[in-house]
């Protein structure tokens, strides 16, 4: 039981998909013009995440390793279609407000990321709880962003006018337009940097030569596996290079010590010890 609540808590707070992992930025910015939209999008994503996680957890031993990506895509897309049709039938107002972003839940990195990183390795019940935790974490995060944007941009909270009593008040409507989304998110990430809160944005870039900075926590999807291998190889090479340099230094120090004893043999030794290091450097590049 503790295990289940652990995964739930993990998704809600410790690895919050929006604030900490910085996944699924497109819906986060696009639908947060009001808190209600945020809740609608968050709950739809939660429903898809729960069901897809559970099914992938159930079928993880049946799906062959090589075709797992298309299999996951089909499972996720099926649940997205179900949610899409249910919303269209029962909550048409939310369906109209979210529009194209409902079918686009399919390409939301959170869902694929959890399928690949969690559900493919764990049983259906734990995966279900992970889905609930992650989904609720996402819902809370985008509802909060939606509240902030709605309050600043329209002076309302959940559609209820709270600012009209103040004379001369005009809402800064830029916050419910497109630029406002970027500004709110930028202030949020800046706050995280300031408070040194754990987040994907304030980690040191692992590998500068790759555009994404080699931060694989932010993209656990299928196609990144290749890139991840590249990063890991580059890291291993860098570590090997460091180790080689250390060994060379140690050897050089040894040689220097030996030099004191006999000046003649030390030069040869130093040359022998110094040789492998540049060779390895070349390999590392």
């Amino acid at each position: 039981m503790k295990k289940y609540f652990g995964t739930l808590f993990n998704g809600l707070i410790k690895e919050n998909p929006t604030f900490v992992l910085m996944l699924g930025m497109c819906p986060t910015l696009a639908v947060t013009t009001s808190a209600i939209n945020g809740i609608g999008m968050g709950l739809s994503t939660t429903a898809v995440l729960m069901m897809s996680n559970m099914f992938i957890g159930l079928l993880r031993n049946v799906i062959p390793e090589k075709v797992r990506i298309p299999a996951y895509i089909v499972i996720i897309a099926s649940f997205v279609t179900i949610v899409d049709l249910l919303l269209q039938a029962f909550v048409p107002s939310v369906y109209d407000a979210l529009g194209i972003y409902i079918p686009l839940i399919v390409v939301n990195c959170i869902i694929f990321g959890r399928a690949e990183a969690f559900a493919s390795k764990n049983g259906p019940v734990v995966s279900l709880f992970d889905g609930i935790g992650m989904g609720l974490g996402f819902t809370c995060a985008i509802t909060i962003i939606g509240l902030v944007r709605e309050f600043l941009g329209a002076g309302t909270l959940f559609g209820i006018d709270v600012m009209s009593g103040i004379p001369g008040y005009t809402p800064a409507s830029i916050f419910i337009m497109a630029p406002g989304a970027f500004f709110v998110l930028s202030v949020l990430t800046a706050l995280q940097n300031k408070l040194k809160a754990p987040s994907a944005t304030n980690q040191e870039a692992a590998c500068d030569s790759i555009a994404c900075g080699g931060n694989c926590a932010s993209c656990a999807g299928s196609v990144f596996v290749k890139n991840k291998e590249m990063v890991e190889q580059a890291r291993a090479a860098a570590e090997a290079q460091k180790a080689a340099e250390k060994a060379a230094k140690a050897a050089a120090a040894k040689a220097a010590a030996a030099e004191k004893a006999s000046a003649g043999t030390a030069a040869e030794e130093k040359a022998a010890a110094g040789q492998p290091a540049p060779e390895k450097e070349g390999k590392g590049e």
Binding site: P179, L185, S186, N193
Partner: peptide, 22 residues
């Protein structure tokens, strides 16, 4: 400013570009 280094300043840039495209 140190807390805006990295991602935040990129997002501010994107916001200003969005205003321009408005």
């Amino acid at each position: 400013t140190s807390s805006f280094r990295g991602q935040p300043i990129v997002l501010v840039t994107a916001g200003l570009m969005a205003i321009a495209f408005c």
